[in-house]
């Protein structure tokens, strides 16, 4: 893909990023930050690609380290975000039930 297309995608992504965050209430900022943190764990994909091209020992070791760190970021980030969001969920259902009864 040429540089211009990448640049276009880059700029559009910035707008989406701004747009997404400005709509989230301050109450959910911690899960939001944690979720964003998990998203950049996608770097593990890049780590896998470069490690897949490494033929010498040193790049291989560094690449594998990158895969390891990236996987920690990605999986850990999503699990902890999920745990947090889980806490906000049940109360909504409880409230909904109470609302139904009222």
């Amino acid at each position: 893909m040429d540089g211009m297309a990448l640049l276009t995608i880059f700029v559009l992504s910035i707008f989406v990023g701004f747009e997404v965050v400005s709509k989230v209430s301050a109450v959910l900022h911690t899960p939001l930050m944690s979720g964003a943190n998990a998203i950049h764990g996608i770097v593990v994909m890049g780590a896998i690609i470069v490690t897949g091209t490494a033929e010498d020992l040193l790049p291989l070791i560094l690449g594998l380290l990158a895969v390891l760190l990236g996987a920690i970021n990605l999986v850990g980030g999503f699990v902890v975000t999920d745990r947090m969001l889980e806490m906000f969920k049940p109360k909504k259902t409880v409230k909904a039930i109470e609302g139904d009864q009222a």
Partner: peptide, 15 residues
């Protein structure tokens, strides 16, 4: 990677 990274970069800056 470009999209995911930029999304986080932009939203993180705003946050």
């Amino acid at each position: 990677l470009l999209i995911a990274g930029t999304l986080v970069g932009a939203s993180g800056t705003l946050l």
